[in-house]
Simulated assay, not measured.
Amino acid sequence: MNFIKYFIFEIHLRFRNPSQLFFSFAFPIFLMFAFASSFGKTIPHYIENNIANIMMYSVLSASLTSLSVQISEYQSGKIYSLFSQRGIRRSVYITAQILSFMCIIFISTLSIMLIAHFAYSYTIPSVQKLLIFYGKLYLYSIPFYFLAFIIGITSKNTTTASAVAMPVMFVSFFFSGMMIPLSQLTGGIQNIAHHFFLTSLISDLTHTLTSHYTVIPNWFIVQISILSLIIAAAIVSYRNK
């Protein structure tokens, strides 16, 4: 019962915060319209081939620029310590935070698909394909939860967390082909992008919806990158215990 109470509290908290609503809903939808207007005229079937990228906008903006700031607010405001003093298990509350984060991602990405359907005549995939896609999307969002946790815990306040999270998000957009299509990147930047773990994750998500890869996923780099984030999160958690 406590877990359900914490989960409902987190959902209410997010929907009452204009900044979190903006980054979880308005910002990804704005990016979809902006990039579709920029590249949709020259790249055929831009929305169909990049819908996985577009939905990943929601994951990164909801985690890096929203969740990290929330964690920083709880950490700097001693809210986590207050939970412990009141006998509330921190792990239970953090699990409720993660679940509310997953719920927000689902609503946000579903909104993106529906808007793409009505604005760009995007054909929504079958339920079976969507179930596979969302299973992978939640799995692939785990590294960004760890990254949000690291940013939130190590930042002295919410302003610092936001100042760190925003550049990280936009760099991720750039190197993964979410901001500029991979085909238009050249030289060393293209080489970095092809070896960036997020590029592989998005490529696999794209394959799930369209049956083709943007790049061949390098699962070794993905595993090393995620393992590094887990180790970093564990170190940060231990030092701030």
Rank of each mutant, 00 (worst) to 15 (best):
N2C: 01
N2S: 12
K5M: 01
F7L: 14
F7K: 00
F7I: 02
I8W: 06
I11V: 15
R14L: 08
R14E: 06
R16D: 11
N17P: 07
F22G: 11
F22Y: 15
F23Q: 02
F23K: 01
S24Y: 06
P28F: 06
L31A: 01
F33S: 07
F33C: 05
A34T: 11
F35A: 03
S37I: 03
S38Y: 12
S38F: 13
S38E: 10
F39V: 09
I43C: 03
P44Y: 04
P44M: 10
I47M: 08
I47L: 06
N53P: 02
I54H: 07
M55H: 01
M56P: 00
M56H: 10
Y57D: 07
Y57S: 03
S58L: 09
V59G: 02
S61V: 02
S66K: 03
L67R: 07
I71S: 03
Y74G: 00
S76P: 05
G77R: 10
F83M: 11
Q85W: 03
R86F: 07
S91M: 03
T95S: 15
A96R: 00
L99T: 11
I104T: 15
L110G: 14
H117R: 13
Y122V: 07
I124D: 11
P125D: 08
V127I: 15
V127G: 00
V127D: 03
K129L: 09
Y138K: 04
Y140H: 02
S141T: 14
S141M: 11
I142C: 08
F144C: 08
G152D: 04
K156C: 01
N157F: 06
N157M: 09
N157T: 06
T160F: 10
A163M: 12
M166N: 12
P167K: 06
F175M: 12
S176T: 10
G177N: 05
M178Y: 02
I180G: 05
S183Q: 14
S183K: 10
Q184E: 07
Q184C: 00
L185K: 09
T186Y: 09
G188S: 13
Q190R: 14
Q190I: 00
N191Y: 13
I192R: 02
D204T: 08
L209F: 09
T210P: 01
S211T: 14
Y213H: 14
T214Y: 07
T214I: 15
V215W: 11
N218P: 06
W219K: 09
F220Q: 11
I221A: 10
Q223F: 12
S228L: 14
L229A: 10
I230H: 03
I231V: 15
V236S: 09
V236A: 12
S237T: 13
R239E: 05
N240S: 13
N240P: 00
K241S: 12
